[in-house]
Write a protein that binds this DNA or RNA. Structure first.
Lengths: 241, 241
DNA sequence: TAAGAAAATTGGTATATACAAATAAAATAT
DNA sequence: ATATTTTATTTGTATATACCAATTTTCTTA
């Protein structure tokens, strides 16, 4: 596993081994990693070399350390990054408002040309279409439409959607989301949005957020389109230093 | 400067000393730092301890290293972070389009109640008001309005605005921007935007980006309001892993 | 003078060691 | 059985050393 004669630095090789362990699901978030001295013994390297490997993974947010306790597996990065843009639920609770959501549609539909293109599947491929209205104190704030190829995540139910699709996909289906691209644009509310968001017919502005998430193999996992009422919601980003 | 009997780790003390040097302008971006062995000799600590301090600052993007050459001062972080949201000029050049801008207003105005509040100054305080239209291939894409208290940055001219206000503020005035908060919302074009962005009168949607930048002492340095044509522009954010 | 070789400088990798500080587990005393 | 004390384990800090690799500077040679 570790090749001392390789030109690749030992600490880097150890990094990769640990990373693989995380990505292959041998360790779960919150699990404790073997102690530094254990790795040192196991791979016949000095503890400082193991330490350098682990330090790098800590800086990359794969791991975190607690003095006296050990080194632990961190939550996947994507969720942390998504917090850069304040998420709906968090934002609402930060303002002392109660966030809820109501599923207005939960179906499997055949992919039309546009969906097929965006999800990178053949036309007519079965696709989950999930629509939900995000509410704050019972007032509609956003309409969220999620599209996921049905073959990727079988056995999805309304109950599971209400908790976390991501968690279900990772823990039950072994799917890891690797990256996501998010865009923000402004549009005018269409008929569906006017009805579900309860806004004026006369050209109410909405903030449209589109997110495309990809798996490790490059396949598109989901498309999420969220329409936020412009009069009630804005996105905030803090930039430090 | 370095206290070996202090409970604060040596590497952390050294970090602070170097950081201070950067923030007090003793080093400029691109300058080379004294070699690790020089610091070790100077502070009478081992090279590895210096290395740990520098490694941390490299991870925090204060410094970067080149093997065989040395350790150098990085560009201030704010500009790097702002690239998380693709900037107008970059975005255009990435698409092979030529970006330009046209200043439509450059004045000093007395602060009204709203401006005074947002900039945290007294009413009637003189404020630079700079309006410019951002163009791509001569087509108007955005209207940008910048407000800066005049006492903060004397001698600002139209020419300087065309290059970089930030650079002028930092290099000539010694002002360092510490943080910025950015919001994105959707609105309908007002009269000014209809005229300068050349959009329809009938309720054209625009993306409104507001940025408030603060100095180290907490004072507000500037407010920037940018209205982007929703039919021509959207913001994109990439989230890795 | 110009080209090439050698030496010096700088960061990169790796080891071995020692003790500190926080936490957890085990042993002991009440 | 329950506190308390002791011991072991784990990460954190720091040193001293050695050699590697990339780059720059200096010296030598043609």
């Amino acid at each position: 596993m570790i090749d001392k004669s390789s030109p690749i630095p030992l600490y880097h090789q150890i990094e990769e081994v640990i990373k693989q362990g995380i990505e292959h699901g041998e360790y779960q978030p919150g699990d404790v990693l073997p102690a530094e001295r254990v790795y040192a013994e196991q791979y016949q390297v000095s503890r400082m070399t193991v330490r350098q490997a682990i330090t790098n993974l800590v800086n990359e947010r794969y791991l975190y350390r607690i003095k006296g306790k050990g080194t632990f597996i961190a939550e996947p990065k994507l969720e942390q990054n998504l917090k850069g843009l304040t998420s709906f639920t968090e934002d609402m609770s930060a303002r002392g408002m109660k966030a809820s959501s109501k599923i207005s549609k939960f179906d499997i539909i055949p992919a039309n040309r546009s969906l097929a293109e965006q999800l990178n599947v053949d036309m007519h491929t079965p696709i989950y279409e999930i629509k939900r209205v995000r509410l704050a104190e019972e007032i509609p704030m956003a309409l969220e439409r999620t599209y996921i190829p049905a073959n990727l995540i079988k056995g999805l139910s309304e109950e599971r959607v209400l908790s976390s699709i991501y968690k279900y996909a990772e823990e039950q289906m072994g799917l890891k989301i690797k990256s996501a691209t998010q865009t923000l644009e402004a549009t005018i509310a269409n008929k569906e949005e006017i009805k579900l968001l309860e806004v004026d017919q006369g050209g109410a502005p909405v903030l449209l957020m589109k997110r495309t998430s990809k798996l490790e193999n490059g396949q598109t996992f989901e498309i999420v389109k969220s329409s936020y009422r412009a009069d009630r919601y804005k996105f905030m980003i803090d930039l430090e230093r």
